Amino acid sequence: MAGKSGAPWWAHVMMYAGGLTMVVAGATAGVAQYGSMAAEDAVPEEEILGDAQAEVDAEKIEGPLNILVLGVDKQGDSTRSDTMILVHINKDLTETTMVSLPRDLWVEIPDCGPGYDNNPCENKINHSASISDDWEVTRPNVVQTIFDLTGVEFHMGATVDFEGFLGLVDMVGEIELCPWHEITSIHGDKRVFPEGCAMYDKDESLDLIRQRYGWNYDSDWEEGRGGDYGRQAMQQQAIKSLLKEFKAKGFLTDPGKLTEILDGFGDSLTIDKPEEWSITDLAVNLRDIDPEGITSVQVPSTPDATTLGGVPVDIVLTHEGAEQEAADALWDALQNDTLDQWKTQYPQWVKTPGSTTATSTETPAEGETTG
């Protein structure tokens, strides 16, 4: 076992490690062995990172670690990614920071699909995942787009789909979500979610955390949670609430219930990790991470508008000047494990543990609507 030297669907990886940690660290050797075998059998592996794979020491797990998590939506034979999260764990393997990439972030994409003769273009980052229905084609394009944008090398990667989230919420029955104002769904029966905290089942939870157009109050934009930023905030709430429910119901301390978590993932989670690092080793090495202490960072950017094929398009843009400076510094901090200094220098882009909003007071760019 490699020694320690130091749920977003995106945080499922952290939740998974947390669940195994409680068993491996606190149970008998027999249970630990069972947990190890079950974990290795339960999580499919695939190549995700490609050229963005960081070099690692195969003999030991040590920080800092960068993990790329892609939330995917599987519909029929098509797989698309519309959630992209950079997870950073510090050198001591005690603190975690999540950086959500806005789906409308305007970036350079290396392959923009048949409509562009597979040439590069500038577009929303989620376009990188729409060039083909074949995930084997789109996945490397998504990863390369993120790598070109950030320069961050990743020690592990993971993909998690919506079905995995539904299954995990179903295990606990309901999770608490706290919309900061009333919001009406744009999906299905147009359910209305009232302001304040309430318990929601799997279908309601998924509906709420997929909303982004309803976060369009002036106050949403003033408080840094308008549009897709609001969606990100609700996703972060959902994962933390799910973790709390698993802990409260004993899933993380009962080996029998842990098996339910393992089975609940099914094919909804795949990972890309060094072959020598086992899931159990990761759990032991990450045992000091407190899920409730996860810090979320907003990519320095604000809403803007452009034209695409002569059609007006609402986007999120990292503007030249202060935003670009902060964004460049963020990518360097992820790569070099200097996030503590970055957070001190750029507090307006940081969300404190338990918070649903960033402290940014940026408003939409001139001429931008909030609808």
Results as ranks from 00 to 15, higher is better:
residue 190 K to D: 11
residue 196 G to Y: 02
residue 190 K to Y: 14
residue 187 H to D: 12
residue 205 S to L: 09
residue 190 K to H: 15
residue 200 Y to W: 13
residue 207 D to W: 07
residue 207 D to T: 15
residue 231 R to W: 00
residue 197 C to I: 01
residue 224 G to A: 04
residue 222 E to F: 03
residue 194 P to I: 10
residue 199 M to H: 10
residue 179 P to H: 09
residue 181 H to C: 06
residue 231 R to G: 03
residue 205 S to A: 15
residue 190 K to V: 09
residue 207 D to P: 10
residue 223 E to H: 06
residue 224 G to P: 02
residue 228 D to K: 01
residue 207 D to G: 10
residue 224 G to M: 02
residue 186 I to Y: 09
residue 214 G to Q: 05
residue 184 T to A: 13
residue 215 W to E: 02
residue 213 Y to W: 01
residue 191 R to Y: 09
residue 208 L to V: 07
residue 198 A to G: 12
residue 189 D to I: 08
residue 200 Y to Q: 07
residue 179 P to E: 11
residue 230 G to D: 03
residue 196 G to A: 07
residue 210 R to A: 11
residue 218 D to M: 04
residue 207 D to S: 13
residue 217 Y to A: 05
residue 196 G to N: 08
residue 193 F to S: 03
residue 176 E to H: 12
residue 208 L to N: 05
residue 187 H to C: 07
residue 218 D to F: 00
residue 202 K to Q: 14
residue 183 I to Y: 03
residue 220 D to N: 07
residue 203 D to V: 11
residue 210 R to D: 11
residue 213 Y to P: 03
residue 227 G to M: 01
residue 195 E to Y: 04
residue 199 M to V: 10
residue 194 P to W: 08
residue 197 C to L: 05
residue 222 E to P: 00
residue 177 L to Q: 10
residue 173 G to N: 13
residue 180 W to P: 11
residue 194 P to Q: 12
residue 181 H to W: 06
residue 200 Y to K: 06
residue 197 C to T: 12
residue 231 R to C: 02
residue 181 H to K: 09
residue 224 G to I: 05
residue 229 Y to G: 00
residue 206 L to G: 07
residue 188 G to H: 14
residue 176 E to P: 06
residue 198 A to W: 01
residue 219 S to T: 13
residue 227 G to Y: 00
residue 174 E to S: 14
residue 175 I to G: 05
residue 219 S to R: 08
residue 198 A to M: 08
residue 199 M to A: 14
residue 199 M to G: 12
residue 230 G to Q: 03
residue 221 W to C: 02
residue 208 L to C: 09
residue 216 N to I: 00
residue 174 E to Q: 15
residue 183 I to M: 11
residue 210 R to N: 11
residue 189 D to P: 12
residue 183 I to C: 08
residue 176 E to C: 13
residue 217 Y to Q: 07
residue 219 S to I: 12
residue 192 V to D: 11
residue 174 E to G: 06
residue 206 L to E: 14
residue 182 E to H: 05
residue 221 W to N: 04
residue 172 V to P: 13
residue 173 G to D: 12
residue 229 Y to R: 04
residue 195 E to R: 12
residue 216 N to M: 01
residue 224 G to E: 04
residue 221 W to S: 04
residue 200 Y to P: 01
residue 191 R to H: 12
residue 206 L to K: 15
residue 230 G to W: 00
residue 226 G to S: 03
residue 195 E to H: 07
residue 180 W to I: 11
residue 222 E to H: 06
residue 229 Y to T: 02
residue 226 G to A: 02
residue 222 E to T: 04
residue 185 S to M: 11
residue 202 K to L: 10
residue 189 D to K: 15
residue 183 I to T: 11
residue 186 I to E: 15
residue 196 G to M: 05
residue 173 G to V: 14
